[in-house]
């Protein structure tokens, strides 16, 4: 089956400093994929680049195919139909994504007008239905509320309603719960799951929190310093993480039970984009570093059908697999 979206060799550089260094990733129809990594690893830039949302100074190469249509370098009208239409995106801070001087109903109806040509009472009825769908109580009256009258969790629900207005096939959620309290985070994650089931929509969830990804996604890609370093079904990643960075991320999570042990913190910090190590980006922090690590950037190698990792220790003899169609 052809994937809904396929990124191939997607790279981005700002002023000559690479932010993204060759991303290969595909998302199938209806699939939930998690993208996890620390700040600056490129997890957000990946999708901003794919949707043409980066400033002009960003140099983008590679390919983003949506159902056989190339998005990189596509003319503005094409991108405008895709953005918010076939692919919608929501961000971390809902209150800065919403316009503070417009009522939320108007902001939802604007999206309905743009992507589905709805106007007037039709649009208003659909906006109310969307607010109901995202679980805002008393939706009819809330249409006339301003963003500041709603809580952070409710504003994120409004953002999701706006994203759903274009009936997208893919929703990219960039840290959608990071600014929210844990009990509200649980509500939003539940909401995303139920909407995905109802609408058969694919989801890309970007987060720094492996726990959040584990709950909401089927497959996860771990990013480090502008590359994907491991990709696996969620359960497999937790049971048998292959890349030392992934192992480090899991080890850094304080356990919920058992004796309290020292956390396996990864020493050092993320390399700066203008001072990337010559070989594996993680080598300077890796306890298994050896000479070949600095010689060349390791490619993703297959451990099993769906599990790939970019580390020379994983399968020294294995040849890089052909890209696995999702």
């Amino acid at each position: 089956m052809m994937p809904l979206v396929r990124l191939t060799g997607l790279s981005v550089a700002f002023d000559g400093a690479p932010a993204l260094r060759g991303i290969d990733l595909s998302v199938a129809k209806g699939e939930a994929v998690g993208l996890v990594g620390e700040s600056g690893c490129g997890k957000s830039v990946t999708w901003l680049a794919a949707l043409g949302l980066l400033p002009a100074k960003a140099r983008i190469t590679g390919s983003v195919m949506l159902d056989g249509q190339e998005l990189i370098g596509a003319p503005a009208p094409v991108l405008e139909r895709v953005r918010g239409g076939r692919i919608a995106m929501i961000f971390q801070d809902p209150s800065s994504s919403l316009n503070p001087v417009h009522r939320i109903g108007k902001q939802i109806m604007e999206a309905l007008g743009l992507h589905r040509g709805m106007t007037g009472s039709n649009a208003r009825a659909e906006a109310k239905r969307l607010l109901d769908l995202v679980g805002i109580p008393d939706a009819g009256r809330r249409l006339d509320a301003y963003p500041h009258e709603l809580s952070g969790g409710q504003n994120q629900r409004v953002m999701i309603a706006i994203a759903l207005a274009g009936q997208p096939e893919l929703l990219v959620a960039d840290e959608p719960t990071t600014a929210l309290d844990v009990t509200i985070q649980a509500q939003i994650l539940e909401l995303l799951q139920s909407i995905r089931r109802q609408m058969g929509m694919a989801l890309v969830l970007i987060s720094h929190d492996l726990g959040v990804i584990a709950e909401a996604c089927e497959r996860v890609a771990v990013m480090y310093a502008g590359r994907i370093v491991e990709e696996a079904p969620v359960a497999q990643l937790f049971d048998a993480a292959a890349h030392p960075y992934t192992q480090g991320l899991i080890g850094a999570l304080p356990p919920m039970d058992g004796p309290r042990r020292r956390l396996a913190a990864i020493p050092g910090g993320v390399p700066e984009p203008w001072a990337m190590p010559p070989g594996c980006g993680f080598a300077p922090r890796c306890q298994f570093r050896s000479a070949p690590c600095d010689a060349a950037i390791p490619g993703l190698m297959g451990l099993s059908d769906q599990h790939r990792a970019a580390c020379i220790r994983v399968a020294p003899a294995a040849m890089p697999l052909e890209r696995i169609p999702a």
Binding site: S151, T183, Q185, Q187, G211, A214, E215, M256
Partner: peptide
Amino acid sequence: RALVSAIPHPGRAGQRIVLQGDP
């Protein structure tokens, strides 16, 4: 109980308590 159950947790067993409403 709700706070503990809201901790995202790989391989969670059992049902999460999702609180209604905002603080």
